[in-house]
Design a protein around this nucleic acid. Structure first.
Lengths: 182, 182
DNA sequence: TGAATATGAATGAAGG
DNA sequence: CCTTCATTCATATTCA
């Protein structure tokens, strides 16, 4: 159906939201770069005003609407958090015995959970003395959450005691309880 | 849509964490079987908890991460819906029985749109034991709140004097002030 | 072997 | 902010 050429690779350069399908905004590399920088600089929930400015700035690199900026931050923030959360769960789940090796590297890069701001960049008043001072986002260990991306990053592929190299293991088929084990 | 059975032939066993490129998860026939059964049993959007269990169960048949399970259900549900949608359109277009097997191929699947559960299988409490109480989401009346309102009303494409459709323009990069323009 | 297709993975966009 | 849907991207797989 939809044409999917083999090598699309680069995202941003193909079109600034123009050219092809204008169904939805597709950030250009430049836009993405800026957004990421802002995020990493500590920006998480930009105000309407900030969104407006960012949008204007980014519009320079391609078509964009302020709502795109709004959504981008919302999604990015959420997914970044979930990713971290999921990884820990995943680990916890597959953690059998503290095997010597494979101590995994869950933490990953920026573990800056909070709205930490990098002054070096002369940021805006991200959350400046507004109402809440310390919004320690306590991640309540809820049992059910959405899953979304906790993906990418390290391929800390959870191993399983079974499944070796093609080798067939006389696995203890739990079987039957197919649909009831949940 | 040739009726080529989903038969992935000899796929399942290759990704035991070995063999070929483990770029991405490739379900083994057993895993696929279970996932499909669960889906047909009515499971559509498993909770994190369910995903964990399923993942554990499936890990027995081969390397797998919980995220794979998450994605599988997301994709399967979406594509099932999409397929059905396309068919109806197709049908609508022809104004008469396509007479082709396409329609049948699909109808073969359970047309249960909802999370209908087949009790026969003694399913889990799909949605039961859910959260106990409400999660009163307090939206702080910040100035940046409710952006959605704004989004709805204005489709302000925050245009810019530059950036037109596809047109190439040697933009005057404001650059530098990346993070300071706010 | 390259086009067509199946499907895992990612993310923009909304609804609530 | 959480959850879900719709699309799209990226590959593995098929097949002529």
């Amino acid at each position: 159906m939809s044409f999917s050429v083999k090598g699309r690779s680069l995202r941003g350069n193909n079109n600034g939201g123009t050219g092809t399908k204008c169904g939805r905004w597709n950030p250009t590399v430049e836009q993405l770069k800026i957004l990421t920088d802002l995020f990493r600089a500590g920006l998480r929930t930009p105000t309407t005003d900030q969104i407006q400015k960012i949008s204007t700035e980014l519009s320079f690199y391609g078509k964009i609407e302020s709502k795109n900026v709004f959504y981008w931050f919302q999604n990015h923030k959420a997914r970044e958090r979930q990713k971290r959360r999921k990884i820990s769960i995943d680990f916890d789940h597959h953690h059998h015995q503290p095997s010597t090796r494979d101590v995994f590297e869950i933490s990953e890069e920026d573990c800056q959970e909070e709205e930490k701001v990098i002054e070096t960049l002369q940021l805006f008043p991200v959350n400046s003395f507004e109402d809440s001072n310390s919004k320690v986002d306590k991640m309540r260990a809820r049992g059910n959450n959405q899953y979304r991306e906790y993906i990418r990053e390290t391929t800390t592929t959870s191993f399983s005691p079974y499944s070796s190299c093609g080798a067939e293991m006389e696995h203890p088929p739990p079987l039957d309880l197919r649909l009831s084990f949940l």
